[in-house]
Design a protein around this nucleic acid. Sequence first.
DNA 1: GAGTGGTCTAGACCACCCC
DNA 2: GGGTGGTCTAGACCACTCT
Lengths: 245, 245
Amino acid sequence: MPAKPVATPSFRPLYEQIRILLTQSLVAGEWKPGEAIPSETDLAERFRVSQGTVRKAIDELASEHILVRRQGKGTFVASHSEPAYQYRFLRVLPDSGEKLTPQNRFLEVKKARASGEAAKALGLKAGTPTLIIKRLMLFQSKPVVLDEIVLAASTCPGATVARLESFRGSMYSFYETVYGLRMIRAEERVRAIEADTFAAEQLAVARGSPILCVDRIAYTYGDKPVEWRRGLCVTSGFSYTNELS
Amino acid sequence: MPAKPVATPSFRPLYEQIRILLTQSLVAGEWKPGEAIPSETDLAERFRVSQGTVRKAIDELASEHILVRRQGKGTFVASHSEPAYQYRFLRVLPDSGEKLTPQNRFLEVKKARASGEAAKALGLKAGTPTLIIKRLMLFQSKPVVLDEIVLAASTCPGATVARLESFRGSMYSFYETVYGLRMIRAEERVRAIEADTFAAEQLAVARGSPILCVDRIAYTYGDKPVEWRRGLCVTSGFSYTNELS
DNA sequence: GAGTGGTCTAGACCACCCC
DNA sequence: GGGTGGTCTAGACCACTCT
């Protein structure tokens, strides 16, 4: 049965509409990270369109790493908890090219009132309760990145050093597993600065040494900013890597 | 007429084969940057496959920014010379968010024998003749990036300061226009370093100031490395920006 | 073998661009 | 109006995974 594009005010292709419906189901938690979504034929039937149209919608979501296709098995909700995607947003890597997985050491978790850059980036009113997490990331016991992570306190209630420390995996895996909050994309700005006393101490470099300052805003569904972080990063033996295309 | 996938030893989808054929035509210069390639129906006829299969092959090349689709007009070979793509690989941008186009000031163009990092990155034997270009990139007359660019001398014969200076546009636009050499993608590694005397002078900062060191390898068709460059970059008012997804 | 995603086709029609 | 890319369908068959 040929489904006509219904009520298209300024023309939205059908597959776009399907993509939006799928996204809504994801936001609503109908399918959770790691789970399979219904088969293409099932979805085609549900939305009363052809399988090819569902396919195109899924193609788009897969290209954004929101869904993952696995031939012969099904289509799954992407997850930061899967080993291959664990540190998908981490751009700081050893120059050697080795695939090392970093260790995390949490220094501090505290509450504070929103202010400054973080609040602005997250669209929070000044004074909103926030959570600030300070963390050291190590590769083979060498400290490489000193992170300050800021979120609205309401986003992640009950986070403590102990809980974070006992969790194995990335922050995004943590948010996902504990709060059902999935990060879709992020923006970064990198600058060169001098290490201050605290950073120098933590990163085991001389005070005043040149280090990278990596500011990041991470977004969940609907381009909603959720996490701001500033990473201070040593670049001897490590560098910030990027693919341009 | 249904075309069967011919002689597929370890199964290559038809559209992959078409993609390879299209790429070969691009490498051979059958269609030049900025030009239109034949219509989908023409190509379908030429390769004796359906239009949908050609379409999928073109989709892939378009997603890699090798081709550009324009509805109602045709499909075109992407070009670094087009305004929108002029500085596609430039990640250093003003914090203000303004869309400024940089000016180039060429300091030196010299010949040298391949050695060190550049030679290794480009896969050149030590001693191969190379060209080294030193350039300052300015935004609104403020010096921001000091580049050292290395290529095999055979790649770009006859390049001089005068010729580069008189050319309006990016290096990649230059290679493309003058030598028919199109850059497809690049890899970058960013580190924080202290400005040496020369860099400090050129970038108008104090000697020893923290600056970014951005190493890049740029590739043409077939992942062939063609250009190595090191950009030393001031990050006051500017930063290296990146999208993660 | 049953179920899933992946490929390919053929044909219809739509949106956009330019003459 | 004629050409181009863009959408959508319906159906056939292939490749992969698991049972």
